[in-house]
Design a protein around this nucleic acid. Structure first.
Lengths: 347, 347
DNA sequence: GAACGTGTTGTAAGCGGTGACAACACCAGT
DNA sequence: ACTGGTGTTGTCACCGCTTACAACACGTTC
């Protein structure tokens, strides 16, 4: 009745064979007589035996598990990635999710995780390059997600630069010439990439974004606070490019507090196409990333690596989603292939 | 250099002691001479040894890890719970997060997880009572989160009924007499609880909510689709109580498509106080749950259980957050003699 | 000086599996 | 009858650590 206590020995005894044979049946080894196989299977069922994963991991070399390390789990981003990931890998192995939350102990937690999995996906700014390199050196298959390459470790990422430029152009096309960036590029490599591209595109159009308005995190609150503080400190951009939709939503909140109208007094852009982004008022112009695909690709990459295959890095396309937060008159909205309004039934 | 290959034997050799002594030093066993302890510690550092978790788990009985099982990870809910959970437990053990996503293999995944952890938190509709009972019978410390009790397993939950009633009363106080519930009570026990309480409160005020409008999930899209289909099928409530904020946002979308104005033509309530709920137009009246505390409590409960202690179930208070989605004129918003209406705008 | 704690350390038996290797039965070829 | 595969099964040495238990070196005590 207590499955936790049954061992190979019990099963072997029940079936009248040796433990090696039980192990063979378990692992579908070919050289087992049909009759024996049946008897063993019957014994397994009768006793309700499930092999102890820990013992298997110690003896063999497989944990039957894959790890995935995120900086955080909030926002619309991660859940979708995980979904894609699990859909692909979940049937073959367990998936261990770890969120580092910038804890100082992150390093240890990741190392600990590394011991319990056969392969690992490391996303964004979770651990330093050194640790990644160490894990790879130890022979662990590692795939990087939305993070700059480390050595020859494969990377699955989305195109930040392209859409960042498109977003910046969109803003300039609307006539904006005082633009600021809002976010914390130092704690998210993809945000850094976006900011760099935005700055480049803006400067190419003779707009100087100046120093980014720094936030303490990537939540709505963080955006609101940073925005209000900047405003009170005399920083008065007419357009703000936020690092993600939540920060952008924070700007909405700040605008409300300050007494500005989004879309007319203040243009705002986000990033992620949060599920409520289209329901803000006015709708938030942002960039949609194929998050589930990101997860799927990452999972496939690890599985391939596990199977001994070679994996190339990929950059997935992102898509500009134009709504009304940069002004309702959107003169040149369609410079790019995009569905300009996702605000109805979608699809 | 490759830390993965160093074992107790290496350390023992380096320090000139036996592996037992190394193990003793590692586990802070008292009976080790100071000099020996120092030498061993030095050897550990020199070799960069980190004990193999798998071997420890197999030999001893501890995995140094706690598991937490969620139905899903999307929405504002789970990330916060995890944050609270990790803040409390994270320093002592690793945390393995598992999302079941209603996969048929969920059962196996949870069993698998159970083998790799010392204790487990099971949230909502992830696995059936039978499995929970089995795990408990196997001696695994289990804490239930936002889920009905199973045997004497401790439960950490939030008050669904109280705020559900307050929400229903709020709606009736606004003069609404055709109210519908939107969601899928069959796949989330807390939603079922809310719906039951809402129905009770509505009927007590002579309002019949009828059958809930069923959704396929709890995302924005699911709410929009279900709402539009219901409307087209002739179901025309003037007020809808959604199971969570995302479904409520879906109603906003549906209203937009149908041509209804939220707050005047159609009243809407949500649940969760999603971070963007206040930025919808009009602001969404909803219920805030202390999600991080939920995680903290759950973690404390497991840790107590692990330490051999006794844990009582708790029900945390929730808070009505009144905004404008039930009508801007909100006649009796905060001041109402009803039990749970310690309501304000976002606490 | 023999007997006895006390503190410190080593030996070795597991934990529950895996897998190399040996052993064995059985049948074909010679 | 003898040799040589082929297929099937058992034996046993690990995997890296924990933890009785035994062993030993010391003062103490009588």
């Amino acid at each position: 009745m207590t499955p936790g206590k049954v061992t190979v020995y019990d099963v072997a005894g029940e079936a009248g064979v040796s433990i090696a044979t039980v192990s063979r049946v378990l692992r579908d080894h070919p050289n087992v007589a049909d009759g024996t196989r049946d008897r063993v299977k019957q014994a397994i069922d009768a006793l309700g035996w499930r092999p102890n994963q820990t013992a298997r991991a110690l003896a063999g070399k497989t944990n039957d598990a894959i790890g995935i390390v995120f900086p955080d789990l909030s926002g619309p981003y991660y859940a979708e990635v995980i979904r894609g990931f699990e859909r692909t890998s979940g049937h073959r192995s367990a998936v261990h999710i770890l969120a580092t939350h910038e804890r100082p102990s992150a390093h240890d937690h990741v190392r600990g995780l590394a011991e319990r999995v056969d392969g690992m996906v490391v996303m964004g700014q979770t651990v330093d390059d050194e640790l990644v390199a160490e894990l790879v050196a130890d022979g662990l298959p590692v795939v990087l997600l939305a993070r700059p390459a480390v050595g020859s470790t494969p990377v699955v990422a989305t195109d930040n630069a392209g859409s960042a430029r498109a977003l910046a152009d969109h803003l300039v096309d609307h006539g904006h010439d005082t633009v600021a960036l809002l976010g914390d590029p130092d704690h998210a490599p993809d945000v850094e990439e976006r900011f760099t591209a935005m700055r480049g595109a803006l400067e190419a159009r003779d707009v100087d974004p100046g120093e980014p308005i720094l936030t303490r995190g990537f939540e709505v609150e963080d955006g609101a606070i940073a925005m209000i503080e900047a405003w009170e400190a005399g920083r008065r951009p007419r357009a703000v490019m936020a690092a993600n939709d939540q920060l952008a939503a924070g700007i909405y909140r700040a605008a409300d507090a300050i007494g500005l109208a989004i879309g007319t007094d203040l243009a705002v852009t986000g990033w992620d196409d949060h599920d409520l982004a289209g329901l803000l008022h006015p709708g938030l112009t942002t960039v949609a990333q194929p998050m589930r695909t990101l997860g799927t690709r990452a999972a496939n990459a690890v599985l391939t690596l596990l199977a001994g295959g070679q994996v190339d890095s990929v950059v997935l396309e992102t898509e500009l989603v134009v709504r009304d937060s940069c002004g309702p008159d959107c003169p040149l909205a369609p410079p790019l292939p995009h569905p300009s309004s996702r605000s109805t039934t979608g699809g």
